[in-house]
């Protein structure tokens, strides 16, 4: 089998992720693990967002909404459990294998409703509307004082995973990495399937796909829901990682940052969004350690990427036509 450039970089990226725990041991720093866990979680969001922005040409500026919904689904279940009013009177919601699919379901349901409305439009309307609906959910959680409002909601412990407590940062990292791997594999399969071909074909020429007999709206809505569910899973992981959620998870700034990640990495590539997520978090952690006003530096950087490198870092590296 011929090894493409993309293949080589994919292996390099995978090895880097696998090496993290050993690097942390060598450096004697748990921060490396924490940062890598965040990268893995953000990478899931970026992969899901690329399915919309990169592959389907649907610029969603509200992806943080589904991330936040996933996070809140986990936190609210935990909150009710801690206050002895478990949802439906059932304590099972503390089990990750139940809570996380629940988070995906909630996020997917949100994406279904928002997508059904937003996808009636296109172009700039779509950008503005996805942004506006995400902001609506943001305000909704700010207004829900019962669940902490502005101050957010803390989780006393992480979810159990198959009945086990996850106290060790490494174990949790492996779980997040496995989730990322599954999402990548799934997204790769989806994009080459019949379904994915419709999405990508419609991004290239919507008129053509309609004239061939594809009701494009339905396929896009399905993609919107799938991407929302993946982001919801990432939100659930994020809530577990920080043991805290707040409306900030749904803020428009975060939606913007997600877009930055995807574009910085390179649209429409498998590993690009992962690289973008890593680059974003590394830059953020470096700059914010240097100055409180790191956005003053990061803003112009984003601007330069948008103007001069619209294909992103990965786009500049990878071969043409690779998936």
């Amino acid at each position: 089998m011929k090894l493409t450039r993309t293949g080589v970089f994919t292996i390099v990226v995978a090895l880097a992720f696998l090496a993290v725990p050993y690097a942390a041991t060598l450096l004697g720093s748990n921060y490396v693990i924490t940062l890598a866990t965040r990268v893995a979680i953000y990478a899931i969001v970026a992969v899901s967002l690329d399915m919309l922005v990169g592959r389907s040409n649907l610029v969603s500026f509200g992806h943080a909404a589904y991330f936040g919904l996933g996070g809140y689904a986990v936190a609210i279940s935990a909150f009710h459990l801690a206050n002895d009013v478990p949802i439906f009177g059932w304590a099972g919601t503390n089990e990750a294998l139940i809570a996380w699919p629940l988070a995906m379901f909630v996020a997917g349901f949100g994406a279904l409703i928002i997508g059904a409305l937003s996808l009636r439009t296109a172009g700039v309307y779509f950008i503005m509307i996805t942004l506006a609906f995400a902001q609506m959910l943001f305000f909704l959680f700010v207004a829900l004082k019962y669940y902490g409002g502005d101050d957010g909601l803390s989780l006393s412990t992480r979810n159990l995973f198959a009945g086990n407590r996850i106290t060790d940062a490494r174990t949790f990292y492996w779980i997040c990495l496995a989730a990322l791997a599954i999402c990548l594999l799934l997204s790769w399969r989806i994009l080459n399937s019949r379904f994915g071909m419709v999405l990508r074909g419609a991004a290239a020429s919507e008129r053509r796909m309609a004239a061939l007999g594809f009701p494009v709206y339905r396929y896009r809505l399905a993609a919107f829901v799938i991407a929302g569910m993946m982001a919801g899973l990432a939100g659930a992981l994020w809530a577990n990682q920080n043991r805290f959620v707040s409306p900030d998870m749904l803020s428009w700034v975060r939606s913007g940052e997600f877009l930055v990640m995807v574009i910085m990495g390179g649209l429409s590539s498998l590993v690009g969004p992962v690289v973008g997520a890593a680059a974003f978090l590394l830059i953020e952690s470096y700059l914010s350690g240097w100055t409180e006003h790191w956005q003053m530096v990061f803003g112009p950087f984003v601007l330069l990427v948008a103007v001069f490198a619209p294909r992103g870092l990965w786009g500049a590296l990878r071969g043409k036509g690779d998936v």
């Binding site: 913007g256 956005q295 003053m296 803003g299 112009p300 984003v302 601007l303 948008a306």
Partner: peptide, 9 residues
Amino acid sequence: LATFGLILF
């Protein structure tokens, strides 16, 4: 993206 960068700045 570019104008988002401007906002951050």
